[in-house]
């Protein structure tokens, strides 16, 4: 099968997911009128509405203090819903910027932490194979490199087979080359598993490389909600890619 044909098919598949979800109202995540303020300060999230379809990959951009983190923490269930409504799948997993592995548990024990059943090691082995970390299954987390630790964190998130995966700047602390590899890995895992993804990032390129939709948050409201109608795999040299990049950067207050 030619690459072009493959791409066309995957595009079709994506389109089908979208159409299906919007027609019968089958939505993975719904945020309605979500408002959050701390103390008497201005609203961090201001009557925010957002819907994410099953299997949709949404990138969330915005400056520090735009409410990205608060939205993510609310969706992850770490912060409470004070005002507004949030509906989300039962299984939600989070990958943070820091790996947050327990240093006193081996990699595989970290992966299946809190999972029941005796086949924990086998399940961990399978998922570690998928993220390319099978050879470090018995390693102690403090001996892992940054990229390896983040792979382990990804494995821990995926072993729960989440309907919704939250990624909180997961590649921000990695070196440039490792980051590229990890972006490729996340793209592939998503293609295979098709869970809804919300990727919080500062990196416009990363958003355009991976997401179906790029959302820019500003002062707790959505300023831009832009579908990224590009085939995959995506190329920076694509003129459409270049245009979108400019649009997003402009909306973030960066002109080039």
């Amino acid at each position: 099968m030619s690459a072009a044909l493959k791409r066309a098919q995957s595009e079709l598949a994506t389109a089908a997911v979208h159409a299906g979800s919007h027609e019968d109202g089958n939505v993975a995540v719904i945020v309605e009128g979500l408002t959050r303020r701390f103390g008497d300060g201005p609203a961090v999230l201001d009557r925010l509405d957002l819907a994410i379809a099953p299997g949709e990959f949404v990138a969330l951009l915005g400056h520090s203090g735009s409410g990205k983190s608060t939205l993510l923490r609310t969706l992850a269930g770490i912060d409470p819903v004070v005002e507004g409504a949030v509906s989300r799948p039962r299984e939600v997993s989070v990958v943070f910027q820091e790996h947050r592995l327990l240093p006193w548990k081996r990699v595989w024990e970290n992966v299946v932490l809190g999972q029941e059943g005796k086949d924990g090691r086998d399940r961990a082995a399978a998922i570690l194979e998928e993220v390319g970390l099978a050879h470090r299954i018995d390693a102690w987390p403090l001996t892992l490199s940054g990229g390896e630790a983040q792979r382990a964190a990804l494995a821990r998130a995926l072993v729960r087979e989440p309907g919704f995966l939250l990624l909180d700047e997961p590649f921000a602390a990695l070196d440039a080359l490792t980051r590229l590899k990890m972006q490729g890995l996340v793209g592939e895992l998503w293609k295979r598993r098709r869970c809804a993804v919300l990727l919080v990032t500062h990196d416009v390129d990363e958003a355009l490389l991976l997401a179906d939709r790029a959302v820019v948050l500003e002062r707790g409201r959505i300023r831009v909600d832009m579908p990224v109608a590009l085939g995959r795999p995506r190329k920076h040299v694509d003129p459409v890619f270049e245009d979108m990049r400019e649009t997003l950067l402009k909306s973030l207050g960066v002109s080039i």
Partner: peptide, 21 residues
Amino acid sequence: PKLLEMTRTLGLSRLDTIRNV
């Protein structure tokens, strides 16, 4: 506290959190 936050997102019970973390 970041580890404790993580265990909350994993849905660990209080007892499991005490034991494992």
